[in-house]
Design a protein around this nucleic acid. Sequence first.
DNA 1: GTGAAAGCGCTAACAT
DNA 2: ATGTTAGCGCTTTCAC
Lengths: 328, 328
Amino acid sequence: MTPQRPTMNDVARSAGVSLKTVSRVVNGETTVAPDLAARVQAAVASLGYRQHLGASMLRRNDRRTRTIGMLLEDVSNPFSAAVHRAIENEARGRGVQVLTGSLDEDPQRERDLAAAFAERQTDGLILAPTGADLGHLAAHTAMPVVFVDRTPTGTTGDTVISTNVSGAAGAVRHLVARGHRRIAFLGDHRRLSTARDRHLGYERALGRRAGPVVHDLHDPLAAERATIALLRGPEPPTAIFAAQNTITIGVVRALRRLGRAHSVALVGFDDFPLADLLDPPVTVVAQDPARMGGAAAEALFERIAGYDGPPREIRIPTTLIPRGSGEL
Amino acid sequence: MTPQRPTMNDVARSAGVSLKTVSRVVNGETTVAPDLAARVQAAVASLGYRQHLGASMLRRNDRRTRTIGMLLEDVSNPFSAAVHRAIENEARGRGVQVLTGSLDEDPQRERDLAAAFAERQTDGLILAPTGADLGHLAAHTAMPVVFVDRTPTGTTGDTVISTNVSGAAGAVRHLVARGHRRIAFLGDHRRLSTARDRHLGYERALGRRAGPVVHDLHDPLAAERATIALLRGPEPPTAIFAAQNTITIGVVRALRRLGRAHSVALVGFDDFPLADLLDPPVTVVAQDPARMGGAAAEALFERIAGYDGPPREIRIPTTLIPRGSGEL
DNA sequence: GTGAAAGCGCTAACAT
DNA sequence: ATGTTAGCGCTTTCAC
C-alpha cells in the first residue's frame, strides 16, 4: 500500500484539464492559457508530481536521456577522480547526469559496462580504454564515444590525450642537462598507449644512450621492487624517469628505504598531491586532468548535438615542475 | 538516415516468432522450445539487438532501473573517491550502475540532484548530506535514501558514520599522554555533524582544559592561515588536533613554513595518501572509507529489496595510526 | 488554444 | 509452449 507516485493523468484530473495540457505546461510550452497553466501548476505542486523521464524519452523525438556514461581506470585514483570531476562540471550546466564505472584494466568489464550503459540509453560515453580491441563499440551506434587519456585500439573517435611523447622527452632531457647519463625508465603496461608514448619520448631524448628499461609495472609495490633491483644491480642508474604516478610513489619509497633519496635523481610523469611536501620534493611532468576531462566532455556534447566531422585528436600540454628531486 | 536500433519486433519478424517469444528469450525464461530459442538468439545476434531498459522498466512490475544515485561532497577528494569506489564494488555484483554527483556543500545542488535522480527513477540514493534540512527528500517516496559520513537533518534513515566522538577523543588523549596541555582544535563547518562530533570528542578528552578552537575552516589554505595565527599568538599551542584531512594538510604546510614541524605535535582526523612519507610522518585517526561505502551500499540494497525496519545507525570504527607527528 | 487518439518498446495478464 | 491484447507514462499527430 505504498502511496503511488502521481502521473500526468492524476494531475490532469485534479486540475480539470486534459492530459495533453499538463504535458504542455510541464514542458514549458507557451501555448497554454494563463489560467489553465496556473491551475496545472497548482495541481503539480499539491500532488508533488514529478515527470517520469524514462517514459518521456521513450516517446520523444530526440530520445535523449540527458545522461552520459564515463568509464575510467579507477574512480578512486587521483587522476581519474580529477577527470571525473571535470566531466561532471561540464555536464552540470547542461542538466546532464553522469553514470560512472571503473575498469581496473579489465577488457571484459569495459565491454560489459559499455553495453550496460547503452541498454540504459546514455546519450554518449567517455572512455579511458583498457587497451583491448574496441570493435564491440560499433554495436552501439546511437552512443557517441570520446576517448580520454589513451588512444583507442580497433576503432576511432575523438581522443583527448596528454602530450606524452614530448612531455616524457622533456623530462629526460631535463635529467640529461643535469649531467645524468645513466637514466632508467620505469613504465606501466606496454599495452597502454600512454606507456608506449612515454617510452618513445624517453628513447627520443636518449637515443642509443638509453639506460635500463623496466616495463609492465602497475602498482607502487612493483615499482619499489624494480627500483631496488636496479640500484643493487651491476650498473645502477644515477637518475630515474617514472612514467606514471603510482610508479613514482613506489620509486620514492624505494629511494627512502635505500637512503638514496638525495643521491638518485627522479622525475615522475603525472603530478600527485603532496609531491611538494616530500623530501626532496618530487619533480614531475604534470598533466592537466581537469582540462582533459573538460575537453572530453565538450567534445562528447558536440557529438551528441550532432557534430559529424572526422575524429579529432585533442592534445593537452604537460608542464615540467622542477621541485628538487630532478635537480640533484 | 541513421541505422535505427532494432526492436523486439524486428527480432521477432526476423526469427519468425511472436514478439512475446523474443521477450521470453531475452529475459531468460525457460518456457521456450529450444529450437525457437535458438532462432531468436541467432536473430538477436545478427541484428545486434539490445534490450531497451527504459521501456522494459516502464512496463515491468518491479519497476527497477538497476541504477542508484550517489551524492558526495566532491568525487575528486580522496575520501569521497574511496567511498565511491566501494559503492561501485557493491553495485557491480548486482548488475547495478551508479549515477554520481558532487555537492560542494551546496544545499541547492543537493535538492536539485536528488530530484534529477528521482526523475530518472534511480532505485535508491546514497547521500553525504550538506547539513541543510532534508525535508524535500520526502517527495521521492519511491527512492530509499541511505546517509553516509554525516547524519541527516530534517529526516531520518539508515546512516553510516565513523566513530567520530570516540576517535577524536582518542586522538586528543594520545596527545595528552605525551604531555601536551595546550592542544588546539581546528575544525570544519560547524553545520556538519562530523565537525560537531569531532569537536565533542575533543572537549570530552580535555574538559575544562580545552585549548584554542577554530571552526569553519574548509580548505588547506584557511587551515594554514589559522595555524600560523595560532602559533604567532599570545599563548601558542604545543599540539594541534586537525579534525579533517584537508585541514591537516594545511597545518602541515604551516608548520613547515614556520619551521615548527618537529616542535609542534599534530594528529589529523582521516588518513591521506603519503602521510607516512612526510617529515615527520603524520599521525592520524584513520577512517575506513571503503568500509563506509560498502556498508552504505549494502544497507541501501537491503532497503531496495524491501527491508522495512527502523532507521539504523552503522558506526565504522576509526584507528589511531601513530607515525611520528603526534609523538614528538 | 485545447483535446482525442495513436504509439514509443516493452512486459503482464490472459488466452489458446 | 506460444501468441494476443492491453497498457506502463508520456509525447506526437492531427483534429477541433
